[in-house]
Design a protein around this nucleic acid. Sequence first.
DNA 1: ATGAAAATTGACGAGGCGTCACGAGGGGGG
DNA 2: CCCCCCTCGTGACGCCTCGTCAATTTTCAT
Lengths: 221, 221
Amino acid sequence: MDVSLLKSPLSREMPSGKREQTKIQNRQLILDAARQVFAELGYGATTVRDIIRATPLASGTFYNYFKSKEEVFQAIRDEVAIAIRPRLHEERMKANTVEEFISCTFRTFFEYVSDDRVNFHAIRHTADNTRIRMDTPEVIAGFEELRSDIESAIAKGLFPPIDADFLMAAIVGVAFELGERMLGREPHDPVAAAKFATALFLGGLRTLPYAVERGVNTGSA
Amino acid sequence: MDVSLLKSPLSREMPSGKREQTKIQNRQLILDAARQVFAELGYGATTVRDIIRATPLASGTFYNYFKSKEEVFQAIRDEVAIAIRPRLHEERMKANTVEEFISCTFRTFFEYVSDDRVNFHAIRHTADNTRIRMDTPEVIAGFEELRSDIESAIAKGLFPPIDADFLMAAIVGVAFELGERMLGREPHDPVAAAKFATALFLGGLRTLPYAVERGVNTGSA
DNA sequence: ATGAAAATTGACGAGGCGTCACGAGGGGGG
DNA sequence: CCCCCCTCGTGACGCCTCGTCAATTTTCAT
């Protein structure tokens, strides 16, 4: 009696039961298979069957974990968003100037994108010349956090009282688009991309670093 | 595939044969139905069958015109790109200063987006919280044209010798992302969006117009 | 050991996919 | 004006994927 009362509440902390373990494992199996298949066939062409075929599981099992391939895709994106969001927030919190706020945001983002090839390769190219962008709740939360950080910075007097929503959108747009371009260049140069974006936001066109070689930025205005 | 180019040399001028007419008509029937169905169900959930069902045609006929729903989507996007590209290019050609180059690019783009509700509504909302961006050859050509215009402007001394590729990407990113935000606000204010984007590119954060009301921009630094 | 709860399995009906043989009907030649 | 040819619309077909569900296996608690 005493034991059973103690055991069940305590066991909540550690989900080390066989049941929980295989559940976690199966989920990961599906996610890994999906990453691989998405990267190979492209998101559009991939079917749920393709994913489970790349797995020892049966077709029905898939639906115990995800509702559709969209949901798998979302989960993969969420992983990325969850990994990068705290880093960005933390960096921005440390910022004492506009320069730091902007530069650390871009630097952190581009470096993460450059590093985490697996996920981004799975997400990037889809079918011929189509690009997908899925704003999952986690990703949207990241956007909102950026906006809220901007608003805090405005309140602190760091930023002038500009439209935080538009500024957030502009940062997001530049980050994603420039990130894409950066991944298309060899070698990846997150620092150059961050320099470019930072200079753009801090001083506009006239302070952008000059191009010195084919598609590589250095120097400054 | 451009039908008019493949036709016999003489009939190029006037495709008034009954055959050519129904061909054009059927294509348009499919495109219109697709616009409607995409807007209703979202791109992801739409099937080729849904499109032809919204049409008096038979299922097989669809494949005489398009290979897949992706191709229909591309065709719709291409229409938009073809409509807007010459406008943008023309405006930029008239620009004598950096200010004009940037401001007319954004102004024209945002005004077009705000006006052409039909196509953008068909393209915008997809399934729950997913966004699709398809870079068709025409759209990519629009990007390339922007880059080439930037390069020309650099050659003319209008711009400093910055990385045209990155600048193009930044403009594209801000245009699409801010456009999305603009469409989410009521009423649409393409001028405010253009002002914001232009100020950002010309002078950076410090010259952005101040926010005076909930999500509406006026004034300047 | 045993029964209940939970999770996996794969077969199933529904329905979409792309194809193809057929037939209708434009269009050019006589 | 007619007729044949050839293009194009048609819808049924075989294949595949979808999401479900009853049966079965696995885990867990007693």
